[in-house]
Nucleic acid binder design. Structure first.
Lengths: 124, 124
DNA sequence: CCTAGTGTATGGTAAAACTCATACACGCGC
DNA sequence: GCGCGTGTATGAGTTTTACCATACACTAGG
């Protein structure tokens, strides 16, 4: 589960990246309702980031009703499932962005798609 | 065109939001190759943000080969895609980046690849 | 009870991001 | 040449982000 998290140096604040990624995992069902989310400390150590940064991401997710924190116990996915994130629309929008980026680098979409399929097959 | 831009106060830096949105518009074909992109000042005024913030977004898009700026004239969508660099290495590296990004957004690589193939078919 | 493991809180530091103001440099049309 | 509209550049100042260190509060289990 911790392996599913990764950070980029692309200008997006770390706590936002973390927030969005966990949101994505919950939306996709990798983290199911009621399941325990990794400890703040676990995340902090695994990603080599500060505990406060993790705390901030978790706090916002709780405010949004995605997570539920229990002092002394852990953090869990809220029972009520939030709106699905993996919509066709989201995929489309993301695909458009990727296409433009690829264009800027002179990479053909077909080749890129092929490479992605291979990555997917390896469970990336 | 300026109506297609909007900002959110969600922790993501303004210049990043702007960069991603323009990237999306280019990929979507709303902004076609050779077309003029709104003036930095136009964007700054329309979105009520600073000129320098716009400048930063545009600069990164130019660095990525998406936009081409002409002093005293305006900014345009890159006309010709730079020489195809379909080296296995380049494609791989780019695919890896995209995969990580997609993972963070909870988007399945298969779905993304499929969407890209369709885009390629449309000559986007 | 006591300990280990959770989340919570605070104060300080540094760097980055953003804004604001003010220019400068270039290209085009009159 | 001149004026206007472009993009470019710089420096100061504020806010946000991220880190680090430290401590507190609560829970479960031995």
């Amino acid at each position: 589960m911790l392996d599913d998290l990764s950070l980029q140096a692309n200008g997006v604040p770390i706590y936002v990246q973390l927030r969005e990624q966990i949101l994505g995992l919950v939306g996709r069902g990798v983290l199911k309702p009621g399941a325990q989310v990794p400890t703040m400390r676990q995340v902090a150590v695994a990603l080599k980031i500060d505990l406060n940064t993790v705390q901030r991401a978790y706090a916002e997710l709780e405010r949004d009703g995605v997570l539920s924190k229990q002092r002394g116990v852990g953090t869990f996915v809220t029972d009520r499932t939030p709106p699905q994130r993996n919509t066709r629309r989201a995929v489309q929008d993301f695909a458009f962005q990727v296409a433009a980026q690829a264009k800027g680098q002179g990479i053909a979409l077909d080749d890129l798609a092929e490479a992605l399929v291979k990555l997917a097959g390896r469970g990336a």
